[in-house]
Design a protein around this nucleic acid. Structure first.
Lengths: 155, 155
DNA sequence: CTATAAGTTGGAGCCGACTCCAAGTCAAGG
DNA sequence: CCTTGACTTGGAGTCGGCTCCAACTTATAG
C-alpha cells in the first residue's frame, strides 16, 4: 500500500493554472480519461494526471486546438509511440508545424525589434539623418516576413 | 509619377492566404482601415495593404487574438512608434509574450523528440544521440512530462 | 438583351473553447 | 438540526473568428 499523493480538482487547477471548469470540460469531451472518483463522487488526481495536465497547458500555450492534442496524450499515456506508426507520423508532422510556428514567432520578434530600434535612433542619438529619407514612405513594414508565402498555413 | 500596382480583393486573398470573407470581416471590425473603393464600389488594394495583410497573417500564425494585433497595425501604418510611448510598452510586453511562447513551443518540440527517440531505440537499434535534433536549450520552467510513462492508465 | 463573372452589403449561422448556473450530494461544525 | 463549503451534474450562454448566404450592382462577352 503506497501513499501516492492525491489531489482534488481544485488543487490541480491551482497547480496547473487550468480552471476546474475547464478540467471538467476536458473530461467531458474525453480529452482526458474519466478521473477516478471517491465514494462521494469527487474526482481524485495523482502525479500522473498532474503532468498530463501540464503537458496540455503547455500545448495550449502554443495555440494548438484541443483535437490536435489527442495524439500527444496517447503517447503520454502509453509511452511507446513506436507501436503506432500513424501516431509517429502525426507527431512528426506536428513537429514540423511547430518549428514553422517558431519561425513565425521569431519573425514577429524581429519585426518588433526593428520597430523599437527605429524609434530608438529617431528618439535621440547621433547623426543619423533619415527624417527626409524614410520618414514615412508608409510601408517599410515588410522586408522580413515575406518568405512564408509558400506552404499552406492551415492550422 | 509611377503607376503603383493595384489589386482586387481576390488577388490579395490569393497572395496572402487570407480569404476574401475574412479580409472583409477584418475591415468590418476595423482591424483594417476602410479600403478605398472604385466607382463601382469594389475595394482596391496596394502593396502597402499587401504587406499589412502579410503581417496579419504572420501574427495569426502565432495564435495572437485579433484585438491584440491592433498595436502592430498602428506601428505598421505609422512607422514611428516612438511617438506613442504606450505603444512601445505594448510592443515590448508582446515581445515578452512571444519569447515565452517560443519557449513553450520549444518544449513541445523537445517532448516530441524525446518520444520519437524512445520509440526509436525500442523498435530499432540503439541511438543515444541523434544528429537530426539540434542542441536542446530545454527550458527550465516545467520539464516534467516524463513521469507519465506509467502505461497504466485505462484509456 | 441576357447571361456570366466579380464584386458589394447586412446579417445569420457555426464551431471551438470555455464559463456560468441551478440543483443536488456529502462531510464536518456549531 | 441546520448551515457552510467543496464538490457533483447537465445544460445553457458567451465570445472570438470566421463562413455562408441572399439580394443586389456593375462590367464584359456573345
Amino acid at each position: 500500500m503506497k501513499a501516492e499523493p492525491a489531489y482534488t480538482i481544485k488543487q490541480i487547477a491551482d497547480r496547473t493554472g487550468i480552471s476546474e471548469d475547464t478540467i471538467r470540460y476536458y473530461e467531458k469531451i474525453a480529452l482526458l480519461p474519466r478521473a477516478v472518483r471517491r465514494d462521494n463522487g469527487h474526482r481524485v488526481y495523482r502525479e500522473e494526471d498532474l503532468s498530463t495536465l501540464r503537458l496540455l497547458s503547455c500545448l495550449k500555450k502554443t495555440g494548438m486546438p484541443l483535437e490536435e492534442m489527442r495524439p500527444f496524450l496517447t503517447v503520454s499515456a502509453d509511452a511507446d509511440p513506436a507501436d503506432y506508426p500513424e501516431l509517429v507520423e502525426q507527431l512528426r508532422s506536428h513537429r514540423e508545424n511547430i518549428v514553422g510556428q517558431i519561425a513565425s514567432l521569431q519573425q514577429v520578434v524581429d519585426f518588433i525589434d526593428m520597430k523599437l530600434d527605429e524609434g530608438r535612433y529617431r528618439g535621440h542619438c547621433s547623426g543619423e539623418e533619415r527624417e527626409d529619407a524614410q520618414k514615412k514612405p508608409v510601408s517599410p513594414t515588410e522586408m522580413s516576413y515575406f518568405p512564408v508565402t509558400g506552404s499552406r498555413s492551415g492550422l
